[in-house]
Write a protein that binds this DNA or RNA. Structure first.
Lengths: 203, 203
DNA sequence: CAAATAGTTAACCAAATAGTTAAACTATTT
DNA sequence: AAATAGTTTAACTATTTGGTTAACTATTTG
């Protein structure tokens, strides 16, 4: 094994890149092969067909993203700490992989049940704990009442959406890649401030 | 013209439906023809090829969505009224066309410049006016300072995101279609509250 | 080392799919 | 009603694309 990467690794890298930017239907086996600098037949040697290759990549991407992220919401932290940690971690992850959200949401449409299975968010566990925390804080008069579904929807919306709209933000506000990075970095601070302000009762 | 719809209209309806749910790459001319209950050759008679058919649909969808929406941000309204009107209108529009956002963002990747051209948001106009309003409110001590890009990003994020994540929300929180509608209806109230709380200085 | 095994390639194939043609049919004009 | 323009269909062609095969090369192993 003298080369830096094995053929299988190169295939995975290539497939990941192409699938993520073009989706399942838009990706071409030839393009993946070219990207991996191998013969097209090798794809079929390592992964029987396009479906299986895709499934492999998709599962890997989900496994890389979902667990570490959702776990934060279940940790033993104050609300403010949770929001801070969630936003910070997630933004870093997304900045390094800005095309993942669109890729995931696109393919989510085709098989919602399977995706959620893989993501592994059960309605119990994490959610129940967060619900308790929100109720407790609200009853103590520290925050306004908010359902966990709204809380999570708002948190994830604010964090993820800019990456979906990146090309548009870029065009409208004239943000180059470098400036977009700055914008994201800034949002590590402003999103938690925004959320905590929104639900806080005291200044 | 005895039939309810002309052939061209039926083609457009069908193409819209198929393109929106499958994307450009995933859509099949035969499927569009079947959906429109016509011969495949008719597609080529009315629209020379797949690209042109797609471009037509895409332009129409953008023209239907972008202008009415962005205009609100430039109107002569208080911030609170703007937020209320924007969220209310946009949510209604999206509820009737829940697949549009994913469709737009997917195809946005391929041609960001053209899309923004079509959407017609120039950096001047609407944006400049909103910026002035935000500055004025902040200087008067009524809201916390916020850049227009963050304001718009937050507003649009909170409004649009749930439709992208709909299948996931459905699975995780067990929302059926009917309940999702209720969730959206509820957000007409909670999103403006959330935003105004977040930026307001006084209770 | 030699046989077996694993990895790789170019050429090929078949299915799917976009696009074309010519003829028939229908509505409109003269 | 004849001519013309517009519409629709079935059959066909061209191209793209996922997948296969057989021959070849490198590597492992007995």
């Amino acid at each position: 094994m003298s080369r830096a990467l094995t053929t299988e690794q190169r295939i995975k890298e290539a497939a990941k890149k192409v699938f993520i930017s073009k989706g399942l239907a838009g990706a071409r086996m030839q393009e993946i092969a070219d990207e991996a600098q191998i013969n097209k037949a090798m794809l079929h040697y390592y992964y029987r067909n396009k479906q299986q290759l895709f499934k492999n990549i998709f599962d890997e991407v989900i496994a890389e993203f979902a667990p570490k992220i959702m776990a934060i919401l279940g940790e033993e932290l104050s609300l403010e700490e949770k929001v801070n940690k969630f936003v910070g971690h997630y933004l870093d992850l997304l900045r390094a992989n800005p095309f993942i959200p669109l890729f995931l949401f696109s393919e989510l449409r085709n098989q919602p049940h399977e995706v959620v299975e893989k993501v592994g968010i059960k309605r119990g566990g994490v959610l129940k704990r967060l619900e308790k925390q929100l109720k407790k804080e609200a009853q103590a008069g520290r925050i306004k009442p908010i359902t966990p579904i709204e809380f999570i929807a708002n948190l994830v919306s604010l964090t993820v959406f800019p990456f979906l709209a990146q090309p548009m933000l870029g065009e409208i506000f004239g943000l180059k890649d470098k400036e977009f990075e700055g914008f994201i970095e800034q949002r590590k601070v402003t999103i938690p401030e925004f959320i905590m302000s929104a639900i806080n009762l005291k200044h």
